[in-house]
């Protein structure tokens, strides 16, 4: 019975705290013209993950600079929100705090967004990476954004095929879904279009965090004869380190990974989310709260291939890459994955 008492007491305590806490702090509406545009973003990993979340954080920093600093654009973030229902709580809380745009930066957050968005018709939401705006369900305040990462994957694949002496190329991925699958499928297509005899070995290690297994997967690829590798998601830093140790070439994606191994990183597909964010902000300022889907592509500059300046890339390979980029932009190269 002692514990029953304890229980009652704690519940009482909790309720007391509620009473003390009182209502939600009300925000005084500032004068319209002085008020900066306010963005909140919920991200699944850390802002310095050298991958998916960092690409969004970097974009927001850049957007802030482009728009004229914190006086024009304020942004806040919740990182490491890998627990889906924690993310939902964060999204709802940001919405109720009156942010102009709440970004759910993870395909796993879509379900929550679908539920939350109708409750805050005055707030705009954005969901990535997807093409779904829930418009057909009568929800009109959700933007969608995605990266056509298979495009840069394809370009990287073309270069990888040209640079590989052994004809064996290794890929390290997390689980076979989403952005990772798009990129890897595009990469494979690029390799095989350039050198049909090349062999692309793909290893999905079943985790976004197991750096050690990613490293060992890279070693396995090298043992199997790979002399060029690529990979996606935040745990590949382990694979990059192995590539560096063995002098195996590396192609990066999502963020610029050159700094990690300047001697072996050939090129990176870099995401610039501002290409999607800018029109969103403009639309919201015009009064359009959602319904549009944006894609980062090579054509619109959302995706760029950044060559590592420290790596001495043969001119003919670079030419081939540039031609491939042109081909993808003008539509003469169709990548047999992705897209609707």
């Amino acid at each position: 019975m002692r514990r029953l008492f304890l229980f009652a007491l704690l519940v009482g305590l909790a309720l007391g705290l509620v009473a003390c806490g009182g209502g939600e702090a009300t925000q005084a509406p500032a004068a319209e013209e002085a008020r900066p545009f306010r963005i909140a973003v919920v991200m699944p990993s850390a802002i310095n993950d050298m991958a998916f979340s960092q690409s969004m954080y970097d974009a927001l920093v850049k957007l802030q600079q482009d728009m004229g600093g914190p006086a024009k654009l304020e942004f806040v973030y919740s990182e490491n929100m890998y627990v889906v229902d924690d993310a939902a709580a964060a999204i709802r809380d940001y919405a109720s705090q009156g942010y102009d745009l709440v970004i759910a930066h993870g395909s796993q957050y879509g379900s929550s967004l679908q539920e939350i968005a109708p409750d805050f018709p005055e707030t705009s939401f954005a969901w990535g990476t997807t093409v779904d705006t829930f418009k057909e369900m009568g929800i009109d305040n959700v933007f969608a954004y995605e990266a056509r990462s298979e495009q840069g994957g394809y370009v990287n694949g073309v270069m990888a095929a040209l640079l590989s002496q052994s004809g064996v190329i290794g890929v390290v991925g997390p689980i076979e879904t989403g952005d990772a699958k798009l990129y890897i499928d595009g990469f494979k297509a690029g390799v095989l279009a350039t050198n049909p005899d090349a062999q692309v070995n793909v290893n999905y290690i079943g985790s976004f965090s197991d750096t050690a297994l990613a490293a060992e997967a890279a070693k396995t690829h090298i043992q199997a004869g790979a002399d060029v590798m690529t990979g996606t998601a935040q745990m590949v830093v382990g694979a990059i380190s192995v590539a560096k140790d063995h002098g195996v070439l590396w192609f990066g994606t999502q963020a610029d990974q050159s700094s990690l191994a300047p001697e072996i990183v050939v090129a990176n597909q870099v995401y610039d989310w501002t290409v999607a964010l800018k029109p969103m902000v403009e639309n919201i300022q015009k009064g359009v709260r959602g319904g549009e889907a944006y894609s980062l592509t090579l054509a619109n500059g959302g995706l760029t291939i950044q060559y590592n300046p420290a790596f001495n890339l043969p001119a003919e390979v670079k030419d081939a890459a540039q031609k491939t980029i042109q081909g993808i932009i003008d539509g003469s190269i169709q990548i047999p994955v992705g897209g609707e």
Binding site: D210, T211, A212, A215, M235, G238, I240, S241, V242
Partner: peptide, 18 residues
């Protein structure tokens, strides 16, 4: 043995359940 031995990098939660 991971961070300066086998991998030579540090990443958050790099042991990942090990």
């Amino acid at each position: 043995s991971l961070s300066i031995g086998l991998l030579k990098i540090f990443q958050q939660n790099m042991t990942s359940g090990l």
